[in-house]
């Protein structure tokens, strides 16, 4: 029988939490091995970054949703960390198979990669709980209603809110989306759709704002390669 919106939202949350039950909020043995295989072990930086971003996220979540919700923010962050580690491990396994390498030192010591991956994980958590919803702005989403988050918030925490919290450029966030979806086949249709909407928003608008790293990349491509003939506009 078709589910009510609240039942569907509750099941989505239950599924997410169930999928993350076996995931720890610390790196797994496999992930530790990948860290140790690096020329420079990134583990301490990873843990330190999570500590810093965890505090920032909880504070901003509390400011946005309500001061009583800082603890809720902490819970969301913890789930986000579990998903972050889970997807990281899956990505590395996939890359190991694809590239036949075990030393991912450059990637795992790239702060932007870790911040992007974490931001994507947090966006998935917030979308599941209805806090990040393009349709309703998060306030009237069945999950948000069912969770009792009925207090009016001062700030909408819908995407791209998370980018500002973790100080991440939209173009860098964009880079992880497809690999994230590929690495976690348990993501449900609604969440994949949400990430796809984020992706489109970035490509159509946010990545083209002043200060985006996209412009530097385009400049490097233009200067690095041979000058190409510009095609005249077709009539």
């Amino acid at each position: 029988p078709p589910q009510t919106p609240i039942r569907a939202a509750m099941n989505s949350i239950k599924q997410l939490r169930g999928d993350l039950t076996s995931s720890g909020d610390q790196p797994s043995t496999n992930l530790d091995t990948y860290f140790k295989n690096c020329t420079v072990d990134p583990k301490q930086d990873v843990l330190k970054r999570l500590e810093t971003l965890g505090q920032a996220f909880s504070q901003r979540f509390g400011q946005a949703v309500g001061p009583r919700c800082i603890v809720l923010g902490r819970q969301r962050f913890t789930l986000g960390v579990k998903l972050y580690y889970k997807v990281m491990e899956a990505m590395l396994k996939s890359e190991e198979k694809r590239l036949s390498v075990q030393n991912f030192s450059k990637l795992l010591n790239d702060s932007t990669f870790h911040t992007s991956l974490l931001a994507c994980a947090l966006e998935v958590i917030m979308a599941t709980y209805g806090e990040s919803s393009f349709k309703t702005g998060g306030y009237n989403h069945p999950a948000a209603t069912a969770a009792g988050g009925g207090d009016a918030a001062d700030t909408n925490v819908c995407f791209p809110w998370i980018l500002d919290v973790v100080n991440l450029a939209a173009f860098d966030f964009y880079k992880v989306i497809e690999s994230f979806i590929k690495a976690d086949p348990t993501l449900n249709k609604e969440i994949v759709k949400h990430l796809e909407t984020c992706e489109n928003l970035i490509m159509e608008r946010i990545a083209w704002r002043t200060g985006s790293p996209l412009f530097e990349l385009l400049k490097q491509e233009h200067e690095g390669g041979a000058a190409e003939q510009v095609e005249p506009p077709a009539s």
Binding site: F104, S179, K182, K189
Partner: peptide
């Protein structure tokens, strides 16, 4: 199941996207 379009080729992955190839 979803209908997300995966655009990356077999020789493209997260390592290339973060300039780590």
């Amino acid at each position: 199941s979803h209908d997300y379009h995966f655009g990356l080729e077999d020789h493209e992955g997260i390592s290339e996207l973060f300039d780590c190839d």
